[in-house]
């Protein structure tokens, strides 16, 4: 009796909740997105400025690129943020065709903690590949001192740090190493997680790696530019395929994007570009071609690619090159 009554009350309460929620709550908050943690600082800034400019609320939560894509597939969000494009399996599970829109460009630093050595240690792609494979074991290895004429490096063992969690940052670094070192490509490969040949220590997230680097002298690892700068970790210059060693910066990352050949669907890795900083990546906003509220979505996406780009450089992102913005605008216009 009582249990029957209770379950009836529960059903009524649930339906009342869903009905009122459906009719009342629908339009108060217009857009919801989730995904990449890398884009989160830019996104929180955009959300704030966009609300000031238009009065429209956007809610973005940094749950990770993979989870962001799954939310979009389930239809629980309006857009996803991801450091890697959707793969074939994810596209197959999606409720319809999607478009990828690069929204920020970022540089990944090869960061280190060696006593007495400032930022700017010159490294080639082969050097980094061999350090992470355990072939270059000591900081004063002739191959490292050769490109850093006059710099005194200690005879201390190199201690490598990498991401323990699946990460777009790892995907960018390993994609770069696969392009510059055939040996890396055949033995390790590229991806969000790889088997690190030398072992080394893992850190969770950019902040985890930054923490390990700060605490262990003679360590080397990779973090996004913002984390290196904010945590005052020293980082290296990287050899460009067109010669010379290049510092990671918003300018050099922007150059790399300009020099890259971006395909029609905007899905490509822009590492090892002919000019600019070689270890550079993009974060995409992913949306369905058919949206249930296309007007709001298009307005926000267009704002992100125009006015929104002015705010990102202070947060250590490179802005999207003009020619890419023009092409992305066309893609946005096609949203229905």
């Amino acid at each position: 009796m009582i249990s029957k009554l209770l379950s009836r009350v529960a059903i009524v309460a649930a339906s009342v909740f869903i009905l009122t929620g459906h009719s009342l709550g629908l339009r108060a908050q217009t857009l919801t997105g989730s995904g990449s943690t890398f884009i989160n600082p830019a996104m929180t800034k955009w959300v704030d400025e966009y609300k000031k400019a238009t009065g429209i609320s956007v809610n973005y939560q940094s749950v990770g690129s993979g989870a962001g894509i799954n939310n979009l597939i389930d239809g629980t969000t309006d857009f996803g943020g991801s450091d890697a494009p959707m793969n074939a399996d994810e596209k197959g599970r999606a409720k319809g065709p999607v478009i990828h829109l690069p929204a920020v460009i970022g540089a990944v630093c090869i960061a280190y903690n060696v006593e007495g050595v400032q930022s700017g240690l010159a490294l080639t792609g082969e050097d980094i590949s061999d350090i992470f494979q355990g072939k270059i074991k000591y900081w004063d290895d002739p191959r490292l001192t050769k490109n850093n004429g006059g710099l005194r490096l200690p005879h201390e063992a190199i201690f490598t740090v990498h991401r323990s969690d699946g990460s777009g940052t790892t995907a960018i670094v390993t994609d770069y190493l696969s392009k510059v070192s055939p040996e890396w490509k055949s033995k390790v490969g590229a991806g969000k997680t790889v088997t690190w040949p030398e072992g080394g220590l893992g850190g969770k997230g950019n902040s985890g790696v930054a923490e390990v680097l700060k605490q262990h002298v003679n360590s080397i690892g990779y973090v996004e530019l913002a984390y290196a700068v904010e945590n005052k970790i020293t980082y290296s210059r990287i050899a460009s395929s067109s010669g010379g060693f290049i510092y990671p910066s918003v300018g050099s990352a922007n150059q790399a994007a300009k020099a890259s050949n971006i395909p029609e669907d905007m899905c490509t890795m822009i590492t090892n570009a002919s000019t600019g900083y070689p270890i550079t990546g993009m974060t995409w906003l992913i949306v369905y071609k058919t949206s249930h509220q296309p007007a709001e979505l298009k307005k926000f996406l267009k704002w992100v690619l125009t006015k929104g780009q002015h705010y990102t450089q202070d947060l250590y992102y490179a802005s999207i090159p003009e020619n890419m913005v023009t092409r992305e605008m066309k893609l946005i216009d096609a949203i229905q």
Binding site: F17, L24, Q29, T32, T44, N59, Q61, V63, N71
Partner: peptide, 18 residues
Amino acid sequence: LLFTAFGNLDFNVRLDHP
């Protein structure tokens, strides 16, 4: 809470919103 309450950049007390 990651996939239910979700989090909200705006102040909210409504039960049917994140």
